[in-house]
């Protein structure tokens, strides 16, 4: 039981990074980004590619690069079609598949992992836990706290908050809404890519991982309420527990079905999610 708790928290912390960005973009710009898993995978591949040159510092340029990519995706693809919700879904879906095919052509259908940041084993309450997984929990908590501070304390963060609450009013007070959307998209991509690197450090990524991650991200944000960042962070841990519990009690392949069923069930029964207030 304790194992489920500990491993659930660890995987939940990765999902928290993924889903907070996903949720942020939806909350601020009303964009449902089907290419979110792509940022996750691209971040991991980028860091793995740069590792031979930069060592563990490759995480930094990888995250920044994917952030820039997120910005470009918004400017080039999403912004022109933003008024048409279904088109946003289609174009990001097409982008996700396009990137998957390109990655497949370059890296082949092989799982790649990022070298472990630290090695060793710690025993917590009788449960042995690899240190590199505990480290991830630490990093995720720090990053999410920083995100919270950034949004609440900085000027840019306040712009983001304002835009998410009332887009037209923000425009009236002189906020460049398009710029805010781009920056939000970049932040979201950076969070996803960091999560991807951390994930690749424990497990591994392959081109098809993007879609798996997307499914979990969906399940989480819908459970937590579309657009609610805090809700999705709580939901991340719930889904993390469910995932580990199902993997332990049955087999991991049931976990994905559970995530998918969660999505459908909540959309039909309670579309605003557990914590949605809309």
């Amino acid at each position: 039981m304790l194992e489920i708790l500990i491993y659930g928290i660890i995987i939940g912390s990765i999902w928290a990074l993924v889903s907070s960005g996903f949720s942020l973009v939806f909350g601020v710009a009303r964009i449902l980004n089907f290419a979110h898993g792509t940022f996750f995978v691209l971040g991991a591949y980028c860091a793995i590619l740069l590792y031979p040159y930069l060592g563990f510092f490759s995480i930094v340029p990888a995250v920044i690069l994917i952030g820039a990519f997120g910005w470009l995706v918004y400017r080039g693809l999403i912004s022109p079609v933003k008024g048409y919700e279904v088109m946003v879904i289609l174009i990001t879906l097409a982008l996700a598949l396009l990137v998957e095919e390109i990655l497949l052509a370059i890296f082949k259908d092989i799982s790649k992992s990022f070298p472990s940041l630290v090695s060793g084993l710690v025993t917590i309450a009788g449960v042995p836990v690899p240190t590199n997984r505990l480290l991830i929990l630490g990093i995720a908590v720090v990053v999410i706290v920083c995100l919270d501070i950034f949004i609440r304390r900085t000027k840019v963060g306040k712009f983001i908050m304002a835009t998410s609450q009332d887009m037209e009013a923000s425009m009236l007070v002189g906020i460049d809404v398009e710029w805010v959307y781009s920056i939000t998209m970049a932040i979201s991509a950076m969070l996803a890519s960091l999560a991807g690197i951390l994930y690749a450090q424990i497990y591994a990524v392959n081109p098809a991982t993007a879609f798996r991650v997307l499914i979990y991200a969906f399940a989480i944000v819908i459970l937590g309420g579309l657009g609610s960042v805090r809700g999705s962070i709580v939901a991340s841990f719930i889904i993390g527990f469910i995932q580990v519990a199902i993997s332990m009690l049955f087999e991991p392949r049931w976990a994905e079905i559970a995530a998918l069923a969660t999505i459908i069930f909540i959309l039909i029964v309670r579309p605003k999610g557990l914590f949605g207030v809309e």
Binding site: I91, A94, L95
Partner: peptide
């Protein structure tokens, strides 16, 4: 002899078409 799937062209085409007429369906 590109080492890619022919689907790549399809996705590019789809993206271009959506960009060109986003007003959509």
């Amino acid at each position: 002899s590109l080492n890619v799937s022919d689907e790549i062209f399809l996705y590019i085409l789809l993206i271009l078409i959506i960009l060109k007429s986003p007003e959509g369906i």
